[in-house]
């Protein structure tokens, strides 16, 4: 498994491939590979709307980080 950390100034639910999985600012265990990351909305107060990433070679202590800015 791989590890994803979604940074956002607030506690929000995270969408991975359109499914709610985990929250911002925690290491989320995700299957290795290509994923579409976003936050649950409304409110649509974040940018970018979504990010496509490829997860590989991470660990629980070194997750891949994805950052959304608050708008």
């Amino acid at each position: 498994m791989e590890y994803l950390l979604v940074n956002y100034p607030e506690d929000r639910e995270v969408l991975i491939d359109t499914i709610l999985q985990g929250r911002t600012n925690e290491a989320i265990e995700v299957e290795k590979g290509t994923h579409l990351i976003s936050l649950k909305s409304p409110p649509l107060n974040f940018r970018p709307k979504q990010k496509k990433i490829t997860l590989a070679g991470t660990s629980a202590l070194t997750p891949q980080e994805v950052t959304f800015a608050k708008t």
Partner: peptide, 18 residues
């Protein structure tokens, strides 16, 4: 599904998922 679409790109990354 959207999950299948993403997994379709994973031939080199994760063959089980692909």
């Amino acid at each position: 599904t959207p999950q299948d679409e993403m997994a379709g790109e994973d031939y080199w990354n994760n063959k089980r998922r692909y």
